[in-house]
Structure formats: structure tokens, C-alpha cells
Design a protein around this nucleic acid. Structure first.
Lengths: 400, 400
DNA sequence: CCTATTAAGTCAATTCGCTTGACTTAATTA
DNA sequence: TAATTAAGTCAAGCGAATTGACTTAATAGG
């Protein structure tokens, strides 16, 4: 029939989809609640005890969960709690930033098992990829030396790099135009033999917050990420939202006023790039992180000046985010030293009024997330873990 | 075990979930593609021919699809296309606006079957509900007179009213504080015996655009709605996004600058309320719609002044929406007369640069959606239809 | 004109994961 | 010590999709 325009339809599902979903639901329940008995799982997931037993047995055989000692509590037979086995799965995370790259291996619960970093040539992706593949190989060997069978348990390679992706060629060398053009994912897939996925760095930060941080178990959270640029990672309905072209949350490009083409993008005022410029520092300089940390701790006046101005824009960004997304919480994350991030957080208060200051809040409107510089690589690694183990609509369907 | 804090987990699923999903997938495929043969459906959904045959047989028995004449095309046995039966399901939509209420009945494909409207007391919800129940009863009887068995096919009552919901009491009478406090959904559910759902008016507009309008079959679209206030309906991943508390998209409250508490909310500049104020008109005045339409057609200078200023803010709103959501398209909808909406649309061009002006666009960045004043009621009615028939994650799970 | 080919759709048996309901085990309470 | 409560198992059953062979009915080509 329709042989010209393709037919648009969602994919159907079958018992495999059912089973896959239920496995994922079990894993998520154990991730969120720590350790649960089969009976607990049955109640929480609304499946029968028998179904849960079968699935748990499967998961145990697959080395993803393990029984703890039986617990006596009140009447009835003692229950046997099960918990996730951290070494049940591993993933590699790769952060590509302007002048450096970081690689980590994380386990099923998001703990870092191995890490490595190296400098990166800003405009020679093919040379850069060689370096990256070397690092990946290194952490992979380290993993193999620590856990037998770990190769078999590697679920994928997640890449995080600054967005936005797929736009017209940029002439700003800090936007990494050469890397944006390069067939990175294909090259990495071929070079590692792993499934490869891509996120922008804010999305990776949000993914990290979700697996091990402040967004753990929160279904509606926005992660405001301040790195060289600024962007937001969007967790909506418990899943990362990517937008139509993978560029959702790239608020660094947002103009700060309706006044027209002359008005400033947010990233010119509230990003580490703007701070470097304000201080007259070279972003590629060694020891920059330590310098900034020290200045922030001293309350250096030039830093405070930037903080004041940036905080004003950020306060307003939070207001907009709350107004637009109605999230349960906003998480401020940064690659800046923690002292600096804390200064920013303080300077952002009091927050602007918004629909978020409602009577019965359970989470703070704004909270500090991680400021670990490795968080983005961890988030990159968390993405394949999430893709493989978290319950999601697409996991039920029959094909990609 | 955990008897203190409740265990958090998603619900599992079983064969009923599988079957429900596949039925929904079939219905959606027919909605999006018009009419399809069983073989087409099997290919599109990746199910087997046999599975599709069984499901189609079911749907046909339930009166939701019907076979058309067989079609000869090329080699092989002729195929029999199936299409949705519009009168296979009905839903009632209710719009509650400041001084009036509208009720419609729509069918499975979103066509209006019956409609009714009445004035509404702004601050007496209990009297208002009586009026509403009277209208609902009227359209319901009209429906019953047109289609036998239609009562049985009524899937629910959708309500749309201005948001945001659940905030502290407001003193602005146009925010309908009395209605916000009133237990509306419970009263309507009791009074009609139907399932009742609630959306804000922008969400309803987006739902309407999705079922019959510009967002038909588009998975990432933002519906910018200009009514008495202004708000956005968010279609993300093919579903309406509501946020943590049902207030996502309430951008009318967004402050236009980071300058602090003194800066203006968007709805003070780009909403019909602001236009009424600009023109010194009473929003409750009779014939307002016609007056505005006439003024817009004449290009009245006072109207044009407002249009210019509002368009500047709206242009920037579109820029922010594009930057934040990365949608495939933005749809401008309004309860204003079409002439006025077109003026606004024109005045918003040229749009601000954003990540949305990418090389290979398929849909316009900004397009005009419906300006039918009944669209909100239609969208309200479309919500129960969508809830009952569209494929969605929650439809697979075992409980609410 | 006749045969090969192509494609839609059916039939009947099979498979697989969840459900059902009875049963076993093992603790606490009275 | 008996009754009660709750975790967890056993074995049969069920239901929806799958499988592979088969039927039907058209067109293409010699």
C-alpha cells in the first residue's frame, strides 16, 4: 500500500517486552530502595510473588542481584532481602572538553572503578581519537585486572561533549568546530567494539545526579550546569529529555532580553568562560582550577564582582526554569571549584518569586549538586547503564 | 520490611499491558496514516501478520475500526484497508473561562458532534457547576439522539481552565480564586458519572493541535497560547508534559528581565488582558470578539501599537522556547480573532536567531494554529480520548 | 493464454511469561 | 503449645504473540 511515504507508527510489543520491563522495574526498585525482599518487590511492582521470584532468580543467575542474610521481623517467615551487585555491570564514560579528555569506568551503582585523563588537541580530532582510544584501552585493562568477566559485563560507552550539536559550522574555536564535524561516534564504536551514545555535558551532569546525586529518584528535576558554557539537563517524567534534535536545554544561547539581535546570550555573562574573560585568564592555563578555588575562598573582589553579576542572571534563569518546567527541584552543578559554586549559590538567594514557592514543598527549590570535575564523565558512563537497566517506554518496544 | 517509608517503584506489567499497548499502537497508526491494511500495520508495528489480524478483529468487533473495499494494487492478493470509526468513541470537553463556559462532544477523530455555551458567575462556583452540569446534560442528550449506544462509548470528561493550579490564594478576581479552591473535579465526577481530567487551557490547546491540528503526528512541539493570559502547551516525546505539579508551561508568570522584583511578567505585556487594558475595554463586554476582529482588519493604530510591543516579547518567547526545548515546531494559537492572530504572527517576523534555524528543517519554526474559540473545549475533550486510546508508557503498567 | 511470481491473509500448533490457588516453612503472640 | 501471620514455593493454567505451512488472488512475462 503506502510504498511512497513511510507509514508512521510506534512499534508493538510482546512477552519479551513485558519481561524486559519487569526486570528493569526490579532493578530500579532495588536501586532506589536499597534492599528489598521478594514480597516487598511484589507489593511495590504489583506483580505476583511468583513472577517476582522467577525474575529475581534470573537476575541472581545473571549476577545482577544477590541475597543478603534472612531477617526476622515480627510474625511470619523471615524475609530474604536482595540488593544490586555493583560489579554486575560496567560502563565507560568519556568526557571530551576543550583541551582535555577524561575517561572513567563505573559500575552498576555508579561508583567509579577506574579513571584516566589526558590533554586533547582542540582542532585535530583524528589525533585526539587516538589519544582517547588509548585511555579507553587503559581503563579497560585496569577493569579487567580488577574483575574477571568484566568485559562481558561492559554495557557501553557514553560520550559527553559540549553542545549544541548539528548546527552550521562555527568559527569560535572554543566551540570545537572540528570535533563537531568529525564522525566521532562511528570511530569510537569501531575502535572499541562497544555501543556508543552521545549527550551534551549538561545532560551528562543530570544523568550523574540522577544515578548517584541529588536527583536520585526524583522524576522532575532540572540540572543547571555551569561549565565553560552553561546549559541545563532536563529530567522530565523520570527520563532525560533531549528535544527534537538532541539540543534541549542549551540555554547558553538564550538571549537575555527581547531587545533584539544586540542583546547578550546568557553564556556571555554566566559561564566560566565569562569568568575567565572577566579575570583575564587563559582557559587552557595549568592550575586554573586551584587558582579559582583559592580566589573564591579568599573572597577576591574581582571574583565577587563576577559572582554578583552572574548570580543575577542565574537567579532569573532559575525563575524561568521553574516557570516553564514546574520541576520538583533545580540542581546547580558546575565544574568550578566547590567554593566558587557555593558563592554563586549564596549570591542567587533570595530566589525570585515563582510558581515554585508553593506551600507544601518537599525538596528545596535550589540545591547544590556535585562539583566534582569528574561528574560529567560519570554521567556519560551512567547513560549506557540507564539505557540498559532503567525502565523506559522504549525498552518495551520491539525495535530501536 | 519497609513499613515506615513507602517503597518507590514503577509498576510491572503482563500480557494485558502488552495487548493494551498493541491495540493503542494500531489505533494511533490508523489515526496518523488514514487507512492501512493488516499487512501494512504488521510492517509498521513490527508485529506478525497474525497478531495484527487478531487485534484488528477485536477492534472491529468493538466498533473502533471498519474495513473498506479491497484494493487491487500490483501483484498479490488485494488488500483490505481499515480505518477508524469516528463514532467508535466520544468524549466531552469542558472549558471554564472567566465569564463563560463551553461544552463540546467530540468523536474518536476529534470532530465536534455537539456544543453548548453559557455565562458563568466568576465567584460562585457552586452555582456555576449547576449551569455546567445542565450544559453537559444537554449535549449528552443531543449525542444520544444522534448515535444509539453512544453513552456506552463515552470515555470521559476533560476540563480545561486557566492555570496555574494549587498556588496560594490570589486576590486577582480574574484568576478565579473561588474556582481554584472549589472541589470541581469531584463535583463533576459525581454529577456526571464520568472520569474527569484537568488541564490548563494552553495544554488543552496543545492537545487539540495534536489530535486535529498542526501538531498532528509531531512528537516535539510547543503550543504558544494567547488567551486572556498566556501559556505554553508542551508536547514532548509525543506526550503532553505537565511538570511536577501540573503547572508546566505557565509562562505568563515569567518575568521579562533579570532585574529583580520590579520587572514585568510576560502576561502583562503579551496577553489579551494586556490588550483590553491598552484599549480600555472591559473583558466581560459583549461583542468584544467582533470588535477586536474589526479593529484588527482595519489595522487600527492602537491595536498596531499593542501588536508591535507584544510581538517583540513573543518573538523573544519563541527564541527562549526554541533554545530550551529544541522543538520541531512552535505553534501560535489564540482565542483572539484570526485577523489579530495573523497580525501578531507577521509582527513576530523575522524571528530571532536560535538553534532552531538549522540547515535541514522540515517544519516551519513558527506556524499559526487554530484560532477557533472552541479549540480549548475540543482539546479538553481530546484529553480523555488520548488517555483512552493513545500509546503511552502508563497504559502498559498495571495500575494508575 | 498459461504459468511463475508476488503479496495478503488464515490456520493450527507452539512458546513463553505471568497468574492462580493450594501448600510449606518459620517466625511471633497469646 | 496452639493460633496467627507472613514469606516464599509448586504445579497447573492462561493468554497473547509467534511460527511455519497453507490458501487466495492478483499481475508480469513468455
Amino acid at each position: 500500500m503506502h510504498d511512497i511515504s513511510p507509514i508512521r507508527a510506534k512499534s508493538g510489543t510482546n512477552q519479551e517486552g513485558t519481561s524486559a520491563h519487569n526486570r528493569r522495574v526490579m532493578i530500579e526498585a532495588l536501586r532506589l530502595n536499597g534492599a528489598l525482599s521478594r514480597a516487598d518487590l511484589a507489593r511495590a511492582t504489583q506483580l505476583t510473588k511468583q513472577a517476582v521470584s522467577n525474575i529475581i532468580e534470573d537476575l541472581e543467575r545473571d549476577g545482577l542481584v544477590v541475597a543478603l542474610d534472612a531477617v526476622r521481623k515480627g510474625r511470619g517467615q523471615p524475609f530474604t532481602p536482595y540488593r544490586l551487585v555493583p560489579e554486575g555491570a560496567f560502563a565507560i564514560g568519556l568526557q571530551i572538553d576543550r583541551h582535555l579528555t577524561r575517561v572513567v569506568v563505573v559500575d552498576l551503582v555508579g561508583k567509579v572503578i577506574a579513571r584516566a585523563e589526558a590533554g586533547l588537541p582542540l582542532d585535530e580530532p583524528s589525533a585526539g581519537v587516538k589519544i582517547i582510544l588509548g585511555l579507553v584501552d587503559r581503563v579497560r585493562r585496569e577493569l579487567a585486572s580488577l574483575f574477571a568477566q568484566s568485559e562481558r559485563r561492559l554495557v557501553g560507552l557514553g560520550v559527553a561533549m559540549p553542545g549544541p550539536f548539528g548546527l552550521k559550522e562555527s568559527d569560535d574555536k572554543w566551540m570545537m568546530p572540528a570535533w563537531q564535524q568529525f564522525p566521532l561516534l562511528e570511530t569510537l564504536a569501531a575502535g572499541t567494539g562497544l555501543n556508543v551514545g552521545l549527550q551534551n555535558d549538561a545532560a551528562a551532569c543530570a544523568t550523574a545526579e540522577r544515578i548517584v546525586g541529588a536527583a536520585h529518584g526524583v522524576d522532575h528535576a532540572i540540572c543547571l550546569y555551569i561549565g565553560y558554557g552553561i546549559a541545563a539537563g532536563l529530567i522530565l517524567n523520570g527520563e532525560l529529555y533531549n528535544g527534537g534534535n538532541g539540543n534541549a536545554g542549551e540555554i547558553g544561547r538564550a538571549l537575555l532580553s527581547p531587545a533584539g539581535p544586540g542583546s547578550t546570550p546568557l553564556e556571555h555573562r554566566a559561564s566560566l568562560a565569562s569568568l575567565y574573560q572577566h579575570l583575564g585568564l587563559d582557559p587552557a592555563e595549568r592550575g586554573l582550577y586551584e587558582t579559582l578555588g583559592a580566589l573564591a575562598l579568599q573572597g577576591d573582589p574581582r571574583i565577587m564582582g563576577w559572582v554578583e553579576r552572574a548570580a543575577s542572571d542565574l537567579r532569573w534563569s532559575v525563575h524561568l526554569i521553574e516557570t516553564i518546567f514546574d520541576p520538583q527541584t533545580v540542581i546547580l552543578t558546575s565544574t568550578a571549584p566547590e567554593a566558587l559554586a557555593r558563592l554563586l549559590l549564596q549570591a542567587m538567594h533570595p530566589l525570585l518569586p515563582s510558581i515554585a514557592d508553593r506551600p507544601a514543598r518537599r525538596l528545596p527549590r535550589l540545591q547544590l549538586g556535585t562539583t566534582d570535575p569528574w561528574a560529567i564523565a560519570v554521567g556519560a558512563a551512567a547513560e549506557p547503564i540507564s539505557r540498559a537497566f532503567d525502565p523506559r517506554f522504549s525498552a518495551i518496544l520491539k525495535a530501536g
